[in-house]
Amino acid sequence: MDTYKLILNGKTLKGETTTEAVDAATAEKVFKHYANEHGVHGHWTYDPETKTFTSTE
């Protein structure tokens, strides 16, 4: 398992979190669920070199 990072740049919520996942697709599902639960619906990007997802509203 690898550690993946999420950076949230929402209108009402900003911050970072991490998750352990078997691959990027699994981490993306976890992070999108997390963002949706916190009302963040933004544009998603992923940097495979740093294993970092960013959601920007």
Rank of each mutant, 00 (worst) to 15 (best):
E49Q: 11
T12G: 09
S55M: 15
K51C: 04
A35M: 09
T56S: 10
K14N: 09
T52N: 01
Y34C: 05
E57S: 05
D23M: 02
K14I: 10
L13G: 08
F53D: 00
E57P: 04
F53P: 00
E28I: 07
G15R: 13
A35L: 12
E49T: 12
T3W: 08
A24L: 09
K5I: 11
F31E: 01
N36G: 08
F31V: 01
K11H: 14
H33F: 11
T54V: 08
G15P: 04
T45H: 11
K11F: 14
D23I: 02
E28N: 04
A21D: 01
G10F: 14
T56F: 09
K11L: 15
K14L: 07
F53V: 00
S55W: 14
V40I: 11
V40Q: 04
T18H: 09
K14S: 11
N9L: 13
Y34N: 01
Y46Q: 00
M1Y: 13
H43A: 12
E16H: 09
L8F: 11
K29V: 12
A25M: 11
M1K: 13
T18F: 14
F53N: 00
E49S: 11
T54S: 07
Y46N: 00
T54E: 07
T3G: 03
E49N: 11
G39D: 07
K29L: 12
A27D: 00
G42C: 04
V40R: 02
V22M: 13
A35T: 06
N9H: 10
G42A: 05
E57C: 05
E16Q: 10
G39Y: 05
N9M: 10
E16F: 13
T56I: 09
V40W: 14
K11R: 12
F53C: 02
E37W: 07
E49Y: 11
D23V: 01
G42M: 05
I7Q: 05
V22G: 09
K5F: 10
A25L: 10
H38I: 11
T12Y: 15
L13E: 09
I7H: 04
K29G: 08
S55Y: 11
A24K: 12
G15D: 12
A25Q: 11
W44Y: 03
T12A: 10
T26K: 05
T26Q: 13
V22Y: 13
V40S: 04
G39R: 05
D2Y: 14
E57Y: 06
I7W: 03
K29S: 10
A21G: 02
V22S: 12
D23H: 03
E49C: 10
H41V: 12
H38E: 05
F31G: 00
T45K: 07
T17K: 08
H33P: 02
K32C: 07
G39I: 04
T56G: 04
L13I: 14
K5E: 03
E16M: 09
A25V: 09
A24W: 13
H38T: 05
A24E: 07
T17E: 05
D47K: 03
A35F: 03
F53W: 05
A35G: 02
V40Y: 11
G39A: 05
K14P: 04
H33I: 14
K29Q: 12
D47S: 06
K51A: 03
T12R: 07
V30R: 09
G42S: 05
D23L: 03
K11N: 13
K51Y: 06
T19P: 01
G42P: 04
H38S: 07
G10L: 08
T50E: 06
G10H: 14
D2N: 14
E28Y: 15
S55T: 15
T56Y: 10
P48A: 12
E57T: 05
T3M: 09
L8W: 11
Y4Q: 02
L13C: 15
N9V: 13
T12C: 15
T3R: 08
D23N: 09
V40K: 02
A25R: 09
L13D: 06
G10Q: 03
F53G: 00
E28W: 15
T12I: 11
H38G: 04
P48W: 07
Y46M: 00
T50S: 10
T54G: 03
E16R: 05
A27G: 00
E49R: 09
T18Q: 09
A27P: 01
E49L: 13
H41F: 14
L6Q: 01
G42N: 03
T50C: 05
A27N: 00
K11I: 15
T12S: 11
G10R: 03
A25W: 09
G42Q: 03
Y34L: 06
E28C: 14
T54H: 07
L6I: 03
E28S: 06
P48S: 10
P48I: 08
K32H: 10
T17I: 15
H41M: 11
T52F: 02
K5Y: 12
A25N: 08
D2W: 12
E20M: 14
G10A: 05
D2Q: 15
K11S: 12
T3I: 13
D23S: 07
T17H: 15
